[in-house]
């Protein structure tokens, strides 16, 4: 198994008397998308700053791409970062600024132009390449900011609230963009308050609270996709009738949704088939089968 793309171990960072990070530990596996979830003030932005080398941790170990702490001279272009609440320079034209940043991470003038073209395609801003940043809407500026993190096709991409201020169509485009980055082998760490969006793209999640990871793991495990199945039914039958057919069933109703906990020793696929067969036999009218809890439900109940 290859080393993780990013590993934090016992990282602490204080601002005066405030503990922004208080022993934060988690990993981002190579070729995966990890969602970083937590309330405002949990330390997510500080975490991004520490990983990107913008902030110095007081204690702990940060290992970026197996090279230790991030050093822009040694790893130019291998890490892309979208920091939160950073304004792009207002007077600069979009392509001029992206080319400058590409050059700064080692690209030749020609490569910088090519990278800029590719990124402008990815964030759908080709038609605004010659616009000054001050002429762009908030959403467009956000896309330029995301685009700069994708220059040079970095191996590790850190995105702090990439969908903030984007309309639903652009959020969907952003989701496709993240998936495409993973498909080419990049590892991503993404923070967002839009949990449904994270759930749609993430392989792993990390819950943060008061500067530390309170829970982390594969999304399927955290949301219980292998252990819980929801059947949304048009005509929910009596539980007793179901248990007559499946005596080992552990289930309860939440409205017209049957929530089934699968025993760990059984094969989920086989059991699901049997439950589905029983529901069809009882004419329950199965409208939807949903594995696991929603990320939002898990997060809010944590």
């Amino acid at each position: 198994m290859s080393a993780p793309a990013l590993e934090l171990e016992g990282v602490r960072k204080r601002y005066g008397s405030t503990r922004a990070l208080d022993g934060l530990s988690f990993q981002v596996q190579r070729g995966s998308i990890t969602g970083l979830i937590g309330p405002n003030g949990a330390g997510k932005t500080t975490c991004f700053g520490v990983v990107g080398g913008l902030l110095s941790p007081d204690e702990g170990r940060v290992d970026v791409l197996g090279m230790g702490a991030f050093d822009p001279l040694k790893a130019a272009g291998r890490l892309g970062l979208l920091p939160q609440d950073c304004e792009l320079p207002r007077h600069t034209r979009v392509q001029t600024y992206l080319r400058y940043l590409a050059r700064l991470q080692g690209a030749s003038t020609r490569d910088a132009a090519l990278q800029t073209d590719r990124v402008l395609d990815q964030v759908a801003l080709q038609d605004r390449r010659d616009s000054r940043i001050s002429e762009l809407s908030h959403g467009m500026r956000r896309r330029v900011a995301v685009g700069q993190a994708l220059l040079a096709s970095p191996e590790l991409i850190l995105l702090d609230e990439p969908t903030s201020g984007l309309d639903p169509r652009l959020v969907a485009q952003m989701r496709d963009l993240l998936v495409a980055q993973r498909a080419r082998g990049a590892s991503l760490l993404v923070s967002s308050h839009m949990l449904a969006e994270l759930e749609a793209v993430c392989d792993h999640v990390v819950f943060m609270e008061a500067g530390r990871a309170t829970r982390s793991g594969p999304l399927a495990e955290v949301t219980g996709r292998a252990r819980i199945v929801h059947f949304v039914l048009a005509h929910p039958p009596e539980l007793a009738a179901l248990r007559d057919k499946l005596p080992e069933l552990q289930a309860r109703y939440e409205g017209n949704t049957l929530r089934v906990s699968l025993p760990t020793e059984s094969s989920p696929a086989e059991l699901n088939d049997r439950i589905l067969a029983a529901l069809l036999a009882l004419d329950a009218g199965v409208l939807e089968v949903r594995p696991g809890e929603s990320l939002e439900t898990v997060y809010l109940s944590d």
């Binding site: 991030f70 822009p72 130019a76 304004e87 320079p89």
Partner: peptide, 13 residues
């Protein structure tokens, strides 16, 4: 002040 320095500082010392 604007934070724009961060876009450069992640690329150069």
């Amino acid at each position: 002040a604007t934070g724009a320095a961060r876009f450069s500082l992640v690329r150069t010392p």
